[in-house]
Design a protein around this nucleic acid. Structure first.
Lengths: 342, 342
DNA sequence: GAAAGTTCCGAAATGCCTTTCGGCACGCTA
DNA sequence: TAGCGTGCCGAAAGGCATTTCGGAACTTTC
């Protein structure tokens, strides 16, 4: 096994360094941490000694004194899903490599397990917690009797006095529709996902609002079912049978949009010339491999993660964050399914 | 902000408990940790006191004494990719919720950053480290002068004296081909991905071996380019133009297979009746949404993660693991692209 | 040359918990 | 009643690093 016992048999400690350098613990500590009250020559001696035995300060002991650990817990229920990861990356990014470390816990959707994880995190004295949900539906709050700040990301807390950050799905729906309008489309339908998801409802609201603002109406009703390609194929087939004159489709996910593209192709409709299609999520692997490539709404999840991390930071530093759910802006990524490419 | 200062202003400590219960620190510790040498009545009193002020032992102090922290570092370069997550889940799973916690670090492919992360992990005195690569190509070893055991997952270490676990790509290629043979196919081609990837080469080896064992030869050469749907579409178009009589295609990824299915559909070939297609990775979102659904090879990544965790465990407990790269079995997932479904 | 002021270093306390070991009190045996 | 064993509790050390504060050694000033 890749394990090399140090010569001493244990990791080097500060007193080892002090002994070798011929100074006291206190002096060694000061020298290494760059505090003054240490003569340059002494400092050099200490640092050399430290390097010699490759001393690294025990972060545990440090944390014990400092009262903060420089760790943050990330509690999720949806590692499998693709939404958590970018958020996690954003958070890790914001925390800065090496400064703060993230404890990752996946509760697998089990409330008991979540409690366990939470307790473990608190025992480890994390400085803060980010809770990442699997959908944008509100989730139960962890409560307020926790000794550390908590920020909810993606899925907001159901308690309005908690701090939550979530993507702005209404704005996303609106943005998608406005793009189709800008592309000259007027007969637009909306194929959505599972109606039980707040995300589906919110995006539909945005779509409707934008249409109303333009003095238009949706062609047919919003079509709800699930988030799959299958549904995208079926829904669009039904849609075109009923409304052959349609010229734009807003899809509530890229998967749905992929299905829609398939059907349109089968039916001989050209995209985007005959029908423009826009997806949602900007899941690159899907969006950039379709024919044509898929215009989509990107929820800026990495930025969401950064925002969550920033708020945790502020709270740790004692800055009062404003409670409530903060909807973060999304962005449009234009590809060939709405605007023809050479 | 969701932060409730404890009445005392700080988290409860063991001495608080002891004071309230009217016993000494030592007794309080014993009572709470279920050690004997404590009278039942005393124990009860202590536990009540602890609950009253919601005391939770400071894991930091504990770790400091125990010499082990119950934490493991997971060092990766590929959070974006889809391979790390199942491995991570498997590892988390094996470690058991609440027993061991995982520090997640993403080095973003930057060696400097990786060094930083590594150092941070060591400072935090993790008990072990799992290194997860982005491809199955060997990666540089972290070296042997580390005070904790290291296990490499997915991407093996380039140092054969390290412990590595990786999926068995040769067996996977073989398995894919044998399945096509079992389906009665004899004129089989292989569309692979980026030839620079060990995974692509290994799978091709397996395919060739299995063909040779059956006394057959590959139709055409192995086609290498990249892992995309685009390539799958283009490659299969070329293939069918040259070898119209083909009846089976092994694809080195599900993405490629999706492209192949598209082309076959466009050309009016029925799958699986005319041509059977098998993918690789068993990426459900792709495999179960295609027409027909895609038979694929699953690398059992979650199990890989568990195996890595187990080996780290063993090493922590002082059990000598056998060094070298361990290829873990993969499995076949049969769907409609090779066997007709009603 | 003595008083005052700098520099630099070290002893000790601190944070929180576990564990060892000594000792007190009680009950039992001879 | 003396002696011994047993059960229960507490003082103190230990793990690692930081910080405060007192003091020794040296320099400056008059």
């Amino acid at each position: 096994m890749a394990r090399a016992e140090h010569p001493s048999g244990r990791a080097a400690t500060l007193s080892d360094v002090a002994r070798i350098a011929g100074v006291s613990l206190a002096t060694a500590s000061k020298a290494i941490n760059g505090r003054d009250q240490v003569a340059p020559a002494t400092r050099r001696r200490v640092i050399e000694a430290a390097e010699q035995i490759s001393f690294t300060p025990n972060e545990l002991a440090r944390s014990l004194i400092a009262g903060r650990t420089g760790t943050v817990g990330l509690l999720t229920n949806d590692l499998e899903g693709r939404f958590v990861i970018p958020i996690l990356m954003g958070a890790e990014d914001a925390f800065g490599a090496g400064q703060v470390n993230v404890f990752l816990c996946d509760a697998r959707g089990d409330a008991i397990r979540e409690q366990h994880q939470l307790k473990a995190l608190l025992n480890r004295r994390v400085d803060g917690i980010i809770v990442v949900g699997r959908q944008t539906d509100p989730r139960p709050s962890l409560g307020h009797d926790l000794p550390v700040p908590v920020v909810y990301a993606y899925a907001p807390s159901d308690d309005p006095t908690d701090v939550s950050v979530t993507p702005d799905n209404v704005a996303g729906g609106r943005m998608a529709l406005e793009h189709l309008l800008a592309c000259g489309r007027r007969r637009i339908a909306h194929i959505s996902g599972d109606p039980a998801y707040a995300a589906a409802q919110d995006r539909a609201v945005g779509v409707r609002e934008a249409l109303a603002d333009a003095g238009l109406e949706l062609v047919g009703d919003v079509m709800f079912a699930d988030w799959s390609e299958h549904w995208g194929r079926d829904a669009s087939a039904m849609l075109l049978a009923q409304h052959p004159d349609i010229d734009g489709i807003v899809c509530a996910s890229d998967q749905i949009a992929r299905g829609v593209l398939d059907t349109l192709r089968d039916l001989g409709r050209r995209v985007p010339e005959d029908v423009a299609v826009i997806g949602y999520d900007n899941w690159e692997i899907l969006a950039t491999n379709s024919r044509p490539e898929l215009t989509s709404i990107d929820a800026n999840l990495q930025q969401l993660g950064r925002a969550a991390a920033r708020r945790v930071f502020e709270a740790i530093d004692g800055i009062e964050g404003d409670a409530g759910t903060h909807a973060l802006p999304v962005r449009l990524v234009i590809r060939g399914s709405t605007i023809p490419r050479r």
